[in-house]
Design a protein around this nucleic acid. Structure first.
Lengths: 324, 324
DNA sequence: CTGAAAGCGCTTACAG
DNA sequence: CTGAAAGCGCTTACAG
């Protein structure tokens, strides 16, 4: 029932080789025969089997994408960037998650060994860098999308400007006349946390630092703690938008006005950032563009272009709204 | 360099058939030889090529997932549900988006024709139902995840209880003593909008209905309009959480207290719902469970179990927080 | 410009 | 219980 290249060849009165040629190179084939073959192909609605082509060619025209979780707020943006780029190249995208822990790692590792895809894009799940390095060692082309600001010179990486982002937050607070910022960070062992803090400090050093998680709760706790401790601050730099949302909430609960009493700058520019009260000033992370760039890099590599040695950097952008 | 079944066969001193047998059925093979073959497999780190197995077996052990967009707020939940289920079954998941319009449709259609996957899960993009039906007609098993509440008896579908969800919102408002609700809907041609309204009306009929989009802006506009028109209402049923977020914001701006002056119930239970001020009471849509259920259905079908005729329904759940 | 043949790496009747 | 052979649906040297 499913129609194959042999059916087309027979119907067109040529060999499979010829059909294959008009399908692929197009070269070396008589214009008239080519036209006839194309007609038959259209008439029969023939499409070459993905799997068969892959086996014969030794490549699958599919890339893998491996991420820690699909429910993180900015993950959809990254995926969409990758999906669009990959689709434009006629490739497919196999999606894997590490949410199942060791079972998930075993799954993706097996798929790598089985050559289910030609190359792999990865947002490195915690503690799985070694496994990723192994995959590369087994000949799988890998490009990293770096959300942590780690320095991984061994692998091609697309990153963003965490340091400059931090500096731009400080610059904004300075221009609005603030001099006594409170900085609320994510987990201090994250490279991006260190860079955001360092960048911020270059323009606006402060001793008021609260280390927490990347959560709304951390934002609330930090403000409650700062207020209870009578810390003196006229502004807040939150290391991400969730923290900033918690900050806004706690500030409102405490009767502080934003930005008059306290100015607030976040990081990420999640969709929710425009819906907080007041709308959030924040440092935009270009997640979609990072996805696109990483996919382009990997696709180029599969096409024969060697991967660049240095990491690619897509810049952050300060989005000014009402909170600072 | 890459090791094949022939390498294993040679090293173990058996035929490819035997290796294949211990790899698959496991049956009909001497325990001792099987053990020896397994040893060699482990020693060599052999993993069968995905593509080759697929071609020989006539199936790819991959399912496709086709969605309108990856950046919708609840999409990550659906995808995670699908990804987990599919992974547990040892399958891969090819992800496609319709964000590129006709180009995207051509892409997915080609992949269906090329049998890039064994079955397809789809959240139907607008105006593409015909294309989906065509795919099924071409022999591709399809399961729909219904976010619109449309009635599509022709295709196996996983849906949720929009009507009961609307009713549960009304019930909540009734128990908190409200009698004059304002209903703010999404696009009225959506089945889910009609069902949510109808369900709500069974318990708490009202003449105050504002039809809009599923956006925060609609929520704000609706409240501004209602206030300006001096509509009398003591509560709001918003057809989704984005609308509800806009409602909360506009209400606050107008000096109304929630829930004392006006109670508010949303729909979806996005992560943001617990971070609004006040935290939102809302009807939870079980997006992850819907993804899991749909994937299980499709996997079962691929395993030989016929698809059920009626649609599967995963119920909504009222989440009571502070806004109502 | 075109075809016959070998090969991609597996699985699966078919014999034995 | 095991192997030789055919076949899955393509591509690609190799001849001509």
């Amino acid at each position: 029932m499913p129609i194959t290249i042999s059916d087309v060849a027979r119907a067109a009165g040529v060999s499979k080789s010829t059909v294959s040629r008009v399908l692929n190179t197009g070269a070396e084939v008589d214009a008239a025969t080519a036209a006839r073959v194309r007609e038959v192909i259209d008439a029969l609605g023939y499409v070459p089997r993905f799997g068969a082509v892959g086996l014969a060619r030794g490549s699958s025209r599919v890339i893998g994408m491996f991420v820690p979780s699909l429910t993180w707020p900015w993950m959809g943006e990254v995926l969409q960037g990758v999906a669009d780029t990959v689709e434009a190249a006629g490739y497919g995208m196999l999606l894997f998650t590490s949410s199942g822990g060791p079972r998930s790692m075993a799954h993706i590792t097996a798929q790598v060994s089985a050559r289910a895809f030609d190359g792999l894009l990865v947002i490195v799940p915690e503690d799985s860098l070694d496994a990723i390095m192994d995959m590369r060692r087994h000949g799988m082309p890998v490009v990293l999308i770096d959300d942590h600001g780690h320095n991984r010179p061994a692998l091609p990486t697309v990153a963003t400007t965490n340091r400059l982002g931090g500096a731009s937050a400080a610059a904004r607070l300075l221009t609005t006349g603030r001099r006594h910022p409170l900085v609320i960070t994510g987990p201090p062992h994250f490279g991006c946390v260190q860079e955001r803090s360092a960048g911020f400090a270059t323009a606006l050093p402060t001793g008021l630092v609260f280390e927490g998680e990347f959560t709304e709760q951390t934002g609330r706790h930090a403000i409650e703690h700062a207020l209870a401790s009578r810390w003196q601050f006229d502004s807040v730099f939150a290391h991400n938008d969730l923290i900033a949302a918690g900050v806004l909430r706690a500030l409102r609960a405490a009767g502080c006005t934003v930005p008059d009493d306290v100015a607030v700058v976040g990081f990420d520019d999640l969709p929710m950032a425009r819906h907080t009260a007041p709308a959030m000033t924040t440092v935009r992370q270009p997640m979609r563009e990072m996805g696109q760039t990483a996919a382009q890099l990997l696709l180029a590599k599969l096409g024969g272009t060697p991967l660049p040695d240095e990491q690619m950097v897509v810049p952050t952008e300060l989005i000014v709204r009402d909170s600072a």
